[in-house]
Amino acid sequence: MGGIKFIIDMGLSSLVYAAIFIFAAGIFYKVYFEYYKTPQPLKIPQTPQPTDSFGVFLRMAGDVLFFRSLAKGTKLLFVAGWLFHFTFLLLLIRHLRYFIYPVPGIVTMFNKVSLLIGIVMLLSMIVLVVRRFLEERVRYVTLLADYFVLFLIMAIVVTGIMLRHEPFRPDVTAVKAFIMELMSPTTPLKLLTMEPAHAPTCFMFVTHLGLVCLLLIYFPFSKLVHSVGYFFSPTRNMVNNPRSVRYINPWDKG
């Protein structure tokens, strides 16, 4: 048994570090080299667009927080999409309880409703999947990759919900200890000397975490970069004042 546990500990720790590295490096590369460094030659805001930068900030906040552009179109997509993203965010916040000690009050607030949040998230994703399949036009443009990422996240949510219940329930203190240990700066070094952090002995937990790592690795190479890409979208982030403020084409800056 010790051998298997060692292999799982080693494997899981390495996977977590590799996933976080690929995710962080990938996103950094995308954002810095591909979006930030690529010039935008001309002003192409999409009007009506505010004529000052604070207004643009508000417009973008409206898009990010309330999906305002999406809300102009199909309501079903808007509602399902927004619920999915919002509940996703809530669950991410809830997971902070594994990363912070002591756990902040705002996180413990979710204790009672976290199952409900998970179920809402799952339902909204089912709507998104079914919609892709049933709506003729969307089915035409849907790729396998679009289903893949939906099902991947759904699998994460399902394993997450199962983790709350017997017989899948892990020892929560062991989980927290494992994560805190992974976060300690000396742990990666100990990997080299074959002393990995101790993962909780719980198959469902290993699956859940493994799927999350898969998502992180997949993230920078996929459409999921829309999350960071939006902020660089020139039709949304440019101020609508081309006449009063001269925009310099980065090409001309030499």
Partner: peptide, 11 residues
């Protein structure tokens, strides 16, 4: 950017 970030939501 536009080639990268489309999620094919169908809007």
């Amino acid at each position: 950017l536009f080639l990268d970030i489309c999620v094919r939501c169908g809007a």
